[in-house]
Design a protein around this nucleic acid. Structure first.
Lengths: 129, 129
DNA sequence: AGTAACACTGTTATAATATAACAATTTTTA
DNA sequence: TAAAAATTGTTATATTATAACAGTGTTACT
């Protein structure tokens, strides 16, 4: 059941995302992969779902966009933290402990059982200043 | 230019949100306000835009949903932190300032100029345990 | 190797979320 | 009171995402 190898469509989508400097929207991915044989939104979303599930791609919720994860062996499938530059749209993923322990402690202090989080920090990146 | 009083549609939408225990989706708001004279999505979105702008409503990005803010004089228009219970869907907003300075410092440490954030913590609330 | 289970594919259609554009009216400001 | 700004109602459309279905390929196990 554990499958290491990506299928053709999954590779196509991931590869496009990896080449991109910014997050891409699903329909942009569709446009960008049509010559590779992807023809319908469903195919893109299916590939994305899988890639997200295995942690290779994350979704930027506030932008309905998707980014390839460049953290080796990222296990942050469902808990991600991003810095998003509002000038150039570049997105950087926070590594560390991913703030998981911080949010865990914070949650506990207000009597809430933490399981995951989504953090998006907006501002201006170093290169744009 | 500072307007304290909400217009009819804005009041209608806000009032529905305030009565709700969970975040509502735009089209649910539309359904819920049709007898009050709201007839088209545009009217809902316009009211929401305004309410968000003045801080009375926040958007839960990961759910495409909207919540009334119950923090008096909330100034977190664009920087919000939520605890979201995955069982009952209840949403609790963390009081403003606390995390802004934390994220500011965190950002600075990686050479990023913080301006706003969106934090969504998922888990299980006290009542559901 | 055979086969059952499962995952992925391609395809068409449609659902759900959100904005554009325009003419009219009301409210605010100066 | 006139100009500017905000809000309204309306129709149409854009954008984002899923459903449903039949077929094909892969995996895992005897």
């Amino acid at each position: 059941m554990k499958k290491e190898k990506l299928t053709k469509n999954q590779q196509t989508v991931l590869s496009l995302l990896e080449q991109s400097k910014e997050p891409l929207k699903a329909y942009t991915i569709l446009s960008g992969t049509q010559k590779k044989g992807i023809k319908a939104p469903t195919q893109v979303y299916r590939a994305l779902d899988k890639l997200i599930e295995i942690g290779k791609v994350h979704k930027i919720e506030s932008k309905n966009s998707y980014v390839a994860c460049n953290i080796s062996n990222c296990n942050a499938m469902t808990s991600t933290s991003f810095l998003i530059c509002e000038k150039c749209e570049k997105v950087t993923e926070l590594e560390k402990d991913n703030l998981k322990s911080f949010f865990g402690t914070l949650s506990k202090s207000v009597n809430f059982e933490y399981s995951d989080h989504n953090l998006e920090i907006f501002g201006c990146c170093n290169a744009c200043r």
